[in-house]
């Protein structure tokens, strides 16, 4: 069998994706233009606003600054992958419930930054939340309800984790 060295492979939202896209294409463009995962937004193209934040191998990154070739083999999560079996992720749910969404353009990036934090720290302090979301610009909300939404999601996730432990 012939080797296709130029083929890149990713796990995106749990699905295996192979592509011959150029290695110097930006991850954000690949997601948006080739996979039509347009939930990942581009607000600046320079890694300054965080609207394009996705999770690569567990880390929140600005996908507009990531060359496709550099993340070959990576496990990538985007906003579209958060909803499981028709159920919103607790972060998505709390962003809706707390009124943390206005124009919505920063929302996917905000949620992905928050998810990367919660995935490795299930009880973050206010400072840790602020640090994790410090690179995500929102021009609508004034951040108040975004912070409240993340705090509410933390509680919800911890409550669910407690339930699961009890069930076991």
């Amino acid at each position: 069998m012939q080797e296709h060295t130029d083929i890149l492979r990713f796990i995106i939202n749990g699905r295996e994706i192979y592509t011959q896209a150029p290695h110097d294409m930006m991850l954000s463009d690949f997601l948006r233009d080739q996979l039509f995962l347009t939930g990942t937004k581009k607000g600046c193209g320079k890694g300054e606003c965080g609207a394009c934040t996705v999770i690569v191998n567990g880390d929140a990154v600005n996908s507009c600054m990531i060359l496709l070739g550099k993340v070959n083999g990576a496990i990538i999560e985007t906003i579209e992958g958060l909803e499981k079996d028709g159920k919103l992720h607790p972060l998505q749910e709390s962003f809706v419930q707390k009124g943390a969404v206005q124009c919505g353009f920063c929302t996917p990036g905000m949620i992905m930054s928050a998810k990367a934090l919660l995935d490795r720290n299930d009880n973050p302090s206010k400072e840790e939340i602020r640090e994790a979301l410090g690179g995500n610009i929102c021009r609508c909300t004034g951040y108040v309800k975004i912070e409240q939404a993340v705090e509410a999601a933390v509680e919800e996730i911890r409550k669910n984790a407690g339930k699961e432990t009890k069930d076991e």
């Binding site: 995962l37 347009t38 939930g39 990942t40 937004k41 581009k42 985007t78 906003i79 579209e80 958060l82 909803e83 919103l88 972060l91 998505q92 749910e93 962003f95 809706v96 419930q97 009124g99 969404v101 919505g104 353009f105 929302t107 996917p108 949620i111």
Partner: peptide, 17 residues
Amino acid sequence: SRQDAYEKVRGVAGYTH
């Protein structure tokens, strides 16, 4: 809850971009 927020948090809200 804002009705549009459900699309926005899912990443399926359409913008001109």
